[in-house]
């Protein structure tokens, strides 16, 4: 399969990702630089899981949101949208390729975590899937935000406003044993399932079983992806 010259939107993003070598080096190194020391240190397991979770959430949200707003400002995305390609397909490809590329960045660091903290293969797969589901969710949030602003700086601001409550509900740092409405809401946030899986990887006992980590985030992500793709006509129209 030939990536460059690209014949699809996702191939264009892959070609650009691997074409900027210095940026690629930084993107591959920074998750390792944060996650590996945390995994190798003796800090409490819940904090180690939380740090990895935060890296995944931030990488996903800012990645898609910023690159989308830059392309929107540039006018190139509107030009792409004026081809006969379906706008929903373009947005789906933006979301999918960004999530996969973010995942490629995080995977080496995750592998080192699994080497340093051996755990059953089921939990390794569950944690890996949960991280990917988090990246899909975070990218969906980034794309959703790009509907309302064409400024990369605003993406940071809006993302913070959306992510903080979700991180709180997921119980990364506070609210670890939610009750009532908070416990109910936690079921709908894929970050929470990733947090549970990573805690299990670091040796903590968790309520969730691996199959829940596969099923619920998959369902939630499917709904989010569908919803974000429905915003495509608005997202890809000129900002006048």
């Amino acid at each position: 399969m030939r990536i460059n010259p690209p014949d699809a939107y996702w191939k264009k993003d892959v070609a650009l990702f691997f074409g900027r070598r210095f940026a690629l080096l930084i993107k591959m190194i920074y998750p390792m630089a944060i996650i590996v020391p945390v995994a190798a240190s003796g800090i409490p397991a819940e904090y180690a899981a939380a740090v990895i979770g935060i890296v995944a959430v931030m990488a996903g949200t800012f990645g898609a949101g910023e690159s989308l707003t830059i392309d929107l400002n540039d006018g190139i995305l509107v030009r792409v949208a004026l081809t006969p390609t379906s706008p929903r397909r373009i947005v789906f490809e933006v979301l999918a390729v960004n999530a996969v590329l973010d995942f490629v960045q995080l995977l080496p660091a995750l592998v080192i975590v699994y080497v340093l903290h051996p755990v059953s293969m089921m939990w390794v797969l569950a944690a890996t899937f949960a991280v990917f589901a988090t990246l899909v969710t975070a990218n969906a949030i980034g794309i959703f935000i790009a509907n309302f602003t064409s400024s990369p700086a605003d993406v940071l601001l809006y993302a913070t406003a959306i992510l903080f409550p979700l991180i709180y509900i997921s119980g990364f740092f506070r609210n670890r044993h939610p009750e009532g409405i908070l416990a109910f809401l936690r079921n709908f946030v894929p970050f929470a399932y990733m947090n549970d899986a990573l805690k299990a990887v670091f040796g903590l006992a968790v309520k969730a079983v691996p199959v829940e980590i596969f099923v619920y985030p998959a369902v939630i992500c499917s709904v989010l992806v569908f919803a974000v793709c429905m915003t495509a006509p608005r997202l890809l129209s000129p900002r006048l």
């Binding site: 460059n4 010259p5 690209p6 014949d7 699809a8 070609a15 792409v80 081809t83 390609t85």
Partner: peptide, 10 residues
């Protein structure tokens, strides 16, 4: 690559 990308999108 730019021109090829657009031609294929069409």
């Amino acid at each position: 690559a730019n021109a090829y990308f657009f031609a294929r999108l069409y």
